[in-house]
Amino acid sequence: MSDGEGQQHPIAIYLWIWVLLFVLSAFSYMVDIAGFQGMLRWSLILLFMFLKAGIIIAVFMHMQWERLSLATAILGPPIVLLVFIGLMAVEGTYTEDLREYFFSPPEVKFSTPHH
């Protein structure tokens, strides 16, 4: 730091964040125990994941106290990963459709009305 003092915050903040991470982890574990399926399961997993990741970065890694120039330089670039994920998801379903077609038994693949 330019002031030479570094990051100084009350210990209580870290203990509270610690408890919060425990609770959020327990919640995401409960998603599996409760046996939620489908959209409910996926959205809950993502919600708890982003909350945990967010508070680790913001508090434990001190990002919320850093200057905006550093925060944007670090947190900005990963946004392009969303494009990558989107592209691979679209391409993946296409590949799966092809495999469903070509790997399926001939009677399914070539079934015609006059058979």
Binding site: Q7, I11, Y14, L15, I17, W18, F22, Y29, I33, F60
Partner: peptide
């Protein structure tokens, strides 16, 4: 018990993050 070991590993890693954060804090003190 589903994911028992994974849950324990998760809590261990979170706890180690907590002790590390406090170590940083005491370092600046």
């Amino acid at each position: 018990v589903p994911l028992l070991l994974i849950a324990i590993m998760t809590f261990i890693l979170i706890t180690s993050s907590g002790t590390m954060a406090m170590a940083v804090n005491y370092g600046y003190r």
